[in-house]
Simulated scan of single mutants.
Amino acid sequence: MSTPSPAPAVTRAAAALDALAASPTGVMTLSDLARELEIPKSSASNLLQALEEAGLVRRQGPGYGLGRKLVELGAAYLDRQDDVREFYRFCEESPTLVNETVRIAMLDGEDVIYLARYEGHPAVRFTSNIGDRMPASLCAVGKALLARRHEKDIAELFPDGKQLPALTPHSITDPATLRAALQEVQQRGYAFEDEESTLGVVCVGVAIPTRGTHGASLGLSVTALKATFTRELERKLVAELQDLARSLGAPMSLGR
C-alpha cells in the first residue's frame, strides 16, 4: 500500500507533467488528461490553469503541452552537471572557441531550444538566450540536427507547400530548398547559416552523437560576425566543435 502524499496537489501536478511528457504527440486534451489522472475534468482544468500560469504547460491547439519554464529549470539543472561544465571547460581551453559565442541546443519538433551558452565574443551577445526557441530551419544547429532525421520525418515536419518562417531576406522559406540544404549538411558533416536568422551574422553547427535518429537530439553551434568571418576561421571552428561534440558524446540525451 502506497504512502499518502504529503502534498497531493504537487504530486498531481507532477503526474500531469509526466503524462504530457509521455504523450506520443506531446499534447493532451483536457479530457485525455483527466482520464489519465483519474480525476474530474473540473479538477484537471484547475490544475492545467495553475500550471499554465506558472509557465509549466502551454496551450497547443485544442490541448496542452509542456511549457518553456521547464526548459529554463532544466537549463539551471544542467548548468550544475558535469556535461555542461565540460562544455564550458572545453570552450575556455580551445584555441578558437575561447573567443567565440558557443551554444548547446536541443531539437524540439520544428524548433531548437537553447540549453547553455558560452560567451567568448562580446560583439555577438545579442544572440538567443538560454531557454529561447528558434525555428530549426533558420539556424545552423537546427539544420545540423534535422539532417540526422529520416527523410520521412522531414517530409512530415515540412511538407511541400508549407511556408517556413522568415527572419531575414536570406531565410529558407521553401521545404524543397530546406531538404536540399539538409542533404548538403549530410555530405559536408556540418551546417552553415549565412544571415538566415540575423543580418550580418553567420553560424556553423554540428550534431552531438546520439544513439539512433529518433531520440533526443543535441547540437552545438558557433555564432560569428560575417564581416570578420573567413574560411580559415570556419575550418578551425568546425574542427573544434566536432572535437567538443565527440567529447560530450550524448550523455545528456541518454538520461544517465
Rank of each mutant, 00 (worst) to 15 (best):
A15P: 03
P6R: 12
T168W: 07
G189Q: 04
V112E: 07
A9S: 09
R117I: 08
P95E: 03
K152L: 09
I104H: 10
I172K: 01
A176F: 10
M134T: 13
L47D: 02
T29H: 05
R133V: 07
L241Q: 07
Q183S: 00
N99T: 11
R148D: 11
P165V: 05
L66R: 06
G74S: 05
E100Q: 14
S2L: 14
E151N: 08
L248N: 06
T198L: 15
L237Q: 13
R68G: 13
R58H: 06
A216H: 13
P209H: 04
Y118E: 06
T173L: 09
V71D: 14
E86Q: 15
V27C: 06
G26M: 02
E151H: 01
S45F: 08
P251N: 14
C139Y: 10
E193V: 00
L178M: 04
I208F: 04
D79E: 15
E86W: 15
S171C: 06
G205F: 13
R68P: 12
T213M: 14
T127A: 14
T101G: 10
A9P: 00
A7N: 07
N99H: 11
E240V: 04
A123Y: 05
P40W: 01
G212Q: 05
A227E: 07
E234Y: 07
D83R: 15
T213F: 15
K162I: 14
R59K: 12
A140G: 09
I39E: 01
D160W: 08
P24R: 02
C139G: 13
Q81K: 13
V84L: 14
V222R: 01
K143T: 02
S253A: 15
I172E: 02
A123C: 11
Y118D: 03
A136V: 02
A147I: 04
R179E: 06
T230R: 03
D82H: 15
L199T: 14
